[in-house]
Design a binder for these strands. Structure first.
Lengths: 332, 332
DNA sequence: ATGAAAGCGCTAACAG
DNA sequence: CTGTTAGCGCTTTCAT
């Protein structure tokens, strides 16, 4: 089923059919109807591959994220879709599973479809990836994180600063024996690592250091959070604050503490990261810091779509400011 | 940057370059290296648009789901990716937001890229969608639900049967004054509706009917579940069982009941749907029914990839059997 | 307002 | 093992 079939069925040249189907140029209403009717009755679906090859234009924007199960990314996607909606551009999702090698493959795969732009999480990529991105000739937007050296544009928060800020709030609230619980992903989950770095930096400035730490691998879950918290508190019962690398394990830890009848936030405080509204209905609200996910999605899409003040192709690095929420788990 | 550039840089014909880059046919190791080197140093990324047009082959599989934030779908995606991994096929995600109109657009958009197959949630689609799917000439797999009339293949569970089975378990446990709490999506969330239909059918068979019901619109969350539960129990304090259309609002309801000090599952029982392991660390385990999400993803991908016994293009309808888990919220 | 010709960058099919 | 020749189905550009 090709344009030619529609052309024959409607008795008009392929060119005119093409014009009707793309609503380009002047076509008399009569032929327009005739063509539309023919296309509809044949069930014609245009071949974008041929169209893209001929026009050298592809209405796709690649979006590369580490994981779909992280909850963080769906919200970013929402922001992206929202903005792309009325630009004629379509997002296409790729998943890297937190692996730079995998990410490199996905970037290669995506660029081979010659998209109109690429949005990808993080500013750390393999050498080869950076080279491809730099060569791509389309807008590249690195999102989530601005602590680094973006290839082109970037929209995100400073995770180092976020970690620092949380540490300052915790210290200000009077906690002193602070422990960390989080992902064990030395290179992959760089953003969690940067938060921890900023956190420890601020502790050091106050003459403190982490009293204990507990790492895990694999997905985050309430159960994981409970288990880690139990392990850590058994080992270091005198800890007075638990800083988690994300809200999910933080919430698990919170539930465990409440089960144990611990005095939260009096004797022990807790904090996570992300501002996952999903967890809002729990018995207590976990202290957290929102990562501006929706806004990151929106602004990155605007850059790709050339909707920003500077116009298309203008390089931009946008640092957003996360909001700290003390919830019910840090003394006020 | 085209094949031609690599051809010139390496002094070999375009055809040979093409062969090297696709590892097709015999090429001497010497030229192979020369070509690879040239391609690498130029930073050449093949143009799949041209390749696909020439070869009439596209290694993409469209996956159309209602929402990314539903938690249910990431797990399906995991199953799909897992299986497609070593087939050379790549999933491409599209989101319909539970709207048939939007779904129709996404189907059209996807088919216009001539993918190797399509996997989509549900068996209810617009007339135009069904027509396009029927015409597509590639494997189409409708997933999640088998209560209906699939266009081609299907993999899922019977939601009607699932609802029935849950009702039977609840009745068997001795609950009699049963209420329903769930999404108000008359046409869109058909699967929730079918579960409710099956549920009421089984109640009727036992001479019972729903004592009350509470609907909501918008996303599912713990907070939503709490609010609905409070509203319903204020209105009908004598209810002894709460059947929720999904685990998220069910968990919210459970937390509310526990806060109120209600005797769960003695005086009042609760059940949800989905088997969301995410919620596993809550104080009590909600009764639920797992929807075989991972397996649905895997099997649908196998069909698209032509990996099933019947070989490629064989139509199949696979009904999986969900597992009932009474958790801690149905008396035993 | 409509049509004809010439590719877009690659690969299938065949020759050597 | 390597090269040549034709397209793939559409859009661009230029006529008419």
């Amino acid at each position: 089923m090709t344009l030619r079939d529609v052309s024959e069925a409607s008795g008009v040249s392929e060119m005119t059919v093409s014009r009707v189907l793309r609503s380009r140029g002047d076509v008399s209403e009569a032929t327009r109807q005739r063509v539309l009717e023919a296309a509809r009755s044949l069930g014609y679906v245009p071949n974008k591959i041929a169209g893209a090859l001929a026009s050298q234009r592809v209405n796709l924007v690649g979006v590369i994220i580490p994981s779909l199960s992280n909850m963080v990314f769906p919200e970013v996607m929402t922001g992206i879709s929202e903005v792309l909606e009325d630009t004629g551009l379509q997002p296409v999702v790729g998943v890297s599973n937190y692996h730079h090698d995998r990410e490199e493959q996905v970037i290669y795969e995506m660029l081979s479809w010659r998209p109109s732009g690429l949005i990808l999480a993080g500013v750390e990529h393999s050498e080869a990836s950076r080279a491809m991105l730099a060569q791509a000739g389309v807008p590249i937007v690195e999102i989530m994180d601005v602590d680094g050296d973006p290839v082109d544009s970037a929209v995100g928060i400073s995770h180092r600063r976020a970690g620092r800020q949380m540490a300052e709030a915790i210290i200000a609230a009077g906690y002193r024996r602070i422990a960390f619980l989080g992902t064990h992903m030395p290179t992959q989950d760089t953003r969690a690592r940067k938060r921890l770095e900023g956190f420890e930096e601020a502790l050091a400035k106050a003459g403190l250091s982490l009293v204990d730490r507990e790492y895990y691998t694999g997905g985050s879950s309430l159960l994981q959070g409970r288990a880690m918290t139990e392990a850590l508190l058994k080992r270091s019962p005198d800890v007075d604050f638990l800083y988690y690398s994300n809200d999910m394990i933080g919430a698990g830890g919170l539930l465990w503490c409440l089960d144990q009848g611990l005095d939260v936030p009096g004797k022990i405080g807790l904090a996570g990261f992300n501002g996952m509204e999903l967890l809002d209905g729990l018995p207590r609200k976990l202290a957290t810091m929102d990562a501006c996910r929706l806004e990151i999605g929106q602004q990155s899409a605007e850059i790709v779509a050339g909707k920003r003040p500077g116009g298309a192709g203008a390089r931009e690095v946008i640092e957003l400011t996360p909001t700290l929420d003390l919830g019910d788990t840090i003394r006020k």
